[in-house]
Design a protein around this nucleic acid. Structure first.
Length: 269
DNA sequence: AATAGTAGCAACCGCCAATTA
DNA sequence: ATAATTGGCGGTTGCTACTAT
């Protein structure tokens, strides 16, 4: 079957964007808003792939982007979120207004990894290096999800809002039917003994994200409104636990959920 | 001052899931 | 119900700037 290319590569520019291209893209999106990236390049008079336009806009040209250094608080938040979510950069970026997934991904790879290593912590497993080295050496933690099972069954969320008050413990997933259970007693220790997160994962109303320039420009306000209207949902869902499977959220108190993460065979935090 | 090595960042690629026809 | 299309994401690459020798 095969996939058709997203654009005609023979007639598209590649590499660094010029100022003129940036201006064209900005002007077009200001006039017409985001959306339909495939047809945007032609409409805007750009010899670029639609995906490339989207990336340029999202990562560099958006007016609400924050530039400058990350604070220590940002670092700690990113570390905690990474411990919870793995390499879900877009989700992590959603908790840092004005930051992009690409920026955070780069920042993680260039700064935070080293920071954690200097603390003697494995950046993939968030465990002390001495204890986690065996697992790392065995290849168990070389996956793209920081040692966590991929949450692939979860539907792509519409930028959930996660607030992190100071205190909630992780709960380990109960054994599940598909064999992704925490087999044996050797993994009974908490996977992230030093993690103590209180996550309130929420999403805004089901309406589409702002598509018009005006709406896009007012993003911070919109986000505040969405936070006010947000509906709390179960984080297990995002972490790959199927509906109701090994999930006790329904019994959790309104003040907080338990967040469960299914374990791969032989895996642990 | 020149060169080599390293770090940081922007952009590309390929895949996946949702949507549409 | 199925295939095609599109948007979005994470991993990786390559260029540029900076630092050490």
């Amino acid at each position: 079957m095969g996939r058709s290319p997203c654009c005609e590569k023979a007639h598209t520019n590649k590499g660094a964007w010029t100022k003129e291209e940036d201006q064209r893209l900005i002007a077009y999106i200001k006039a017409h808003g985001e959306g339909c990236w495939r047809s945007l390049p032609k409409a805007a008079g750009l010899l670029r792939c639609g995906k490339s336009c989207r990336l340029r806009w999202m990562n560099y040209l958006r007016p609400d982007l924050k530039r400058g250094n990350f604070t220590d608080d940002d670092d700690e938040l990113i570390i905690k979120l990474h411990a919870l979510l793995g390499n879900k950069w877009s989700l992590i970026a959603g908790q840092l207004p004005g930051r992009t997934d690409n920026e955070i991904k780069n920042y993680w790879n260039t700064h935070i990894k080293r920071k954690l290593l200097s603390r003697g912590i494995d950046p993939q497993t968030h465990r002390p290096l001495s204890g986690g080295s065996a697992a790392a050496a065995s290849g168990l933690t070389t996956s793209s999800t920081a040692g966590f099972p991929s949450p692939s069954p979860a539907p792509r969320p519409a930028r959930p809002v996660i607030t992190i008050p100071p205190n909630v413990m992780f709960a380990r997933a109960a054994p599940s039917e598909d064999g992704h259970s925490s087999s044996g007693g050797s993994t009974d220790a908490p996977r992230c003994p030093d993690l103590n997160l209180d996550l309130d994962l929420s999403v805004g109303p089901p309406s589409s994200p702002p598509k018009t320039p005006a709406a896009a420009a007012s993003t911070p306000t919109s986000q505040q409104q969405q936070q006010q209207q947000r509906t709390t949902i179960c984080l297990c869902y995002h972490l790959g636990v199927r509906g109701g499977e090994a999930c006790s959220c329904k019994t959790a108190s309104p003040a907080g959920f338990r967040f469960l993460r299914p374990l791969e065979e032989g895996q642990y935090i």
